[in-house]
Amino acid sequence: MEPITQFKGVVAPLDRANVDTDAIIPKQFLKSIKRTGFGPNLFDEWRYMDQGEPGKDNSERPLNPDFVLNQPRYEGASVLLARRNFGCGSSREHAPWALLDFGFRVLVAPSFADIFYNNCTKNGILPVSLDEAIIEHLFQEVYETPGYTISVDLPNQVLETHFGDRHPFDIDAFRKHALVEGLDEIGLTLQHADEIRAYEARRRQSAPWLFAGGQ
């Protein structure tokens, strides 16, 4: 995972509440057995006028000119501004994979769905939640200002707008640590292998039926 500490990027506004992971990456693309290559199909149903299928040449497909990511002014955006409850629904990690593959590293919204939030932080995407009123203001500024950027300073937990307004944000210590360091969580957990074994030994005594099916 690519660590993230300081980051600055152009903002694309996605003005919808309750954007679900089915919309972020529709099911037909979940048939891939890889982690990469989902970017061209990010928001597929909103982005293209025709029906997307795995293996189809996306460069030949008709684009929906109204969709925000197809508008030239937001080209190269790496910060996505969204509305409340972003990423609800299915637990598919393909959703953050698609956002990342497209180029998004920072998401800014009033709130995120739990599983999605967690999946983002495991893939080097920083979700920032801010007050609904601040988000509303950011939408206005983005609409009015071509080339609008946002920068984040994760160690200090501050988001800075294009015009220099600074908004502090919250993030759990462990998620912050993982994002800043880009850690191998499995490797870290396995450093506690003895404690896991000790737990299993205790549990085998107190709840033996849980281990009855072998091992």
């Binding site: 982690r35 637990s91 598919r92 990690e93 953050p96 599983i115 967690n118 999946n119 495991k122 893939n123 759990d172 462990f174 969580e185 499995i186 957990t189 396995l190 292998a193 896991i196 299993e200």
Partner: peptide, 20 residues
């Protein structure tokens, strides 16, 4: 509870998950 694929790998490899 549901988990993402990174956590699927974590659960497979360690029989645990890091949770708040």
């Amino acid at each position: 509870f549901g988990i993402g694929t990174s956590e699927v790998e974590h659960a497979l490899a360690t029989q645990t998950l890091i949770q708040a």
